[in-house]
């Protein structure tokens, strides 16, 4: 599973990246957390507000920092 955190490097984007990494580590998921800062690539997902979360090329969340539990739900639902 490839998890992408989209954002230009603002505080909220870093928070989301931390939460995502924490969830992956805690649940021992076979996943890679990638940070995307390139504006062209971010816009490619149709995202207009950062941070955003993309799981296996699917946009799951944009414009807010989710709670830990929400990220758990997002990352485990598809498996």
């Amino acid at each position: 599973m490839i998890i992408k955190v989209l954002g230009s490097g603002c505080a909220n984007c870093q928070k989301l990246e931390q939460v995502a990494k924490q969830v992956v580590a805690d649940l021992v998921l076979d996943a890679q957390v990638v940070k995307v800062t390139d504006m062209g690539e971010i816009m490619g997902y149709g995202v207009m507000s950062t941070p955003a979360l993309v799981v296996d090329e699917q946009l799951r969340l944009a414009g807010r920092v989710p709670t830990y539990g929400e990220v758990v739900t997002i990352l485990t639902r598809d498996q």
């Binding site: 603002c10 504006m39 207009m48 507000s49």
Partner: peptide
């Protein structure tokens, strides 16, 4: 609409496009 200046760039591009 929620807006923070850190999202101004993607928002601007999204609007114009």
């Amino acid at each position: 609409t929620p807006f923070c200046s850190c999202s101004a760039v993607p928002l601007f591009i999204g609007f114009v496009e």
